[in-house]
């Protein structure tokens, strides 16, 4: 254990979508900027850079976080999953396919974050985590629209595809949730 000096390149390894990447980064580089600017994994979006929009949502060890409010150097022991790790345009993940089928987006800029967030959110639901709506996840048979809305509220969509995002997630959770 030793100090990484200010404004020096720190050698670090990030594991993203199952691939290990050796990088030399300024300690100031956020996980988001490491993905976008250094690995050119630009599916993860920067909408506000302050945890106020959710466009940068990625999965770290399966949990959704805002990658803008975390330093890359803090994630060397973690497995990071981005939108690119879920599916490709030619071979979509079922939730991505549900977004296309239900038109759960318009401009597409918040979409990666919505999808990654939804994957993480459904995992939380399956583990019985409560929400602001109450302690229902253990008892309810399936997630409903109200729970999806509350749990997805950290992902803003200015095009306001909200109702259709909820439909896409609900469809996926009901029909394909077991795949996740």
């Amino acid at each position: 254990m030793s100090w990484i000096e200010a404004d020096s390149g720190a050698a670090l390894t990030l594991s993203v979508n199952g691939m290990r990447h050796d990088l030399k980064l300024d300690a100031r580089v956020t996980l988001l900027d490491a993905l976008r600017e250094h690995l050119q994994l630009t599916g993860t979006k920067k909408g506000c850079d302050h945890g106020q929009c959710g466009a940068c949502t990625v999965l770290v060890n399966g949990r959704r976080i805002n990658s803008c409010l975390s330093l890359a150097v803090m994630h060397q022991a973690d497995e990071i999953t981005t939108i690119e790790g879920l599916g490709t345009a030619e071979n979509l993940h079922p939730l991505q396919a549900a977004f296309v089928a239900k038109d759960g987006f318009q401009c597409g800029y918040c979409t990666s974050g919505q999808i990654c967030s939804a994957i993480g959110m459904l995992g939380e639901w399956r583990e019985g985590w409560p929400s602001h709506l109450g302690d229902r996840a253990d008892a309810a048979p399936a997630i409903d629209a109200a729970e999806i809305r509350e749990r997805m509220s950290g992902n803003l969509c200015r095009c306001a595809a909200y109702p259709r995002i909820v439909e896409a997630i609900e469809h996926y959770a009901t029909h394909e949730g077991a795949d996740a």
């Binding site: 945890g51 959710g54 949502t57 949990r63 959704r64 976080i65 805002n66 409010l69 975390s70 967030s117 993480g120 959110m121 939380e124 409560p130 929400s131 602001h132 302690d135 749990r151 997805m152 509220s153 950290g154 992902n155």
Partner: peptide
Amino acid sequence: LSQAILAGASGQLRNK
């Protein structure tokens, strides 16, 4: 306490 935490921020922020 559980209710207060869940009334704050977002799922992503609460995970971090």
